[in-house]
């Protein structure tokens, strides 16, 4: 059991490394055959031919951050739901009611965000 478990996760790391290695190999191969004639214009940021103004790494709209937070809440919620999905048949009514409460709390959270206008893009 333990060794099978370990082998499974070795596979995961092997596949992740293999995915990265593939790109590195392709990039090296294309480096061999492609030309390289760099000019100052080519190396400048592309802004439809106009000289770029200002630093693009300036602060950006806060609404992305709000959506990031909301995503975090619901993603963590999914982590709690996954184990429940496997055992809810044995837990029966009690498990269902507990999950109902949990989802209701989350639903109120979503409703709160909605009423506060966090879900509006404009």
């Amino acid at each position: 059991m333990t060794s099978e478990y370990l082998t499974n996760w070795l596979y995961v790391w092997f596949f992740i490394a293999a995915g990265g290695a593939l790109v590195v190999l392709i990039l090296l191969f294309s480096k061999l055959i492609n030309p390289s004639h760099l000019t100052a214009e080519k190396l400048a940021p592309y802004e439809c031919g106009i000289p770029p103004v200002g630093n693009p790494w300036a602060p950006f709209a806060v609404r992305y951050y709000v959506f990031g937070l909301l995503f975090l809440v619901f993603d963590v919620e999914a982590v709690f739901l996954f184990p429940w999905t496997l055992v809810f048949r044995t837990l029966g009514t009690a498990g269902f009611v507990e999950m109902l409460l949990f989802i209701a709390v989350l639903g109120f959270g979503l409703l709160y965000a909605w009423r506060k206008g966090a879900l509006e893009w404009a």
Binding site: L27, S30, K31, N34, S36, H37, K42, A44, Y46
Partner: peptide, 18 residues
Amino acid sequence: MMGKEDFRPLLADPVLFT
């Protein structure tokens, strides 16, 4: 695509860009 020039803009982050 393989034969096209592949370069990194001067201002781009050298590590993260690749």
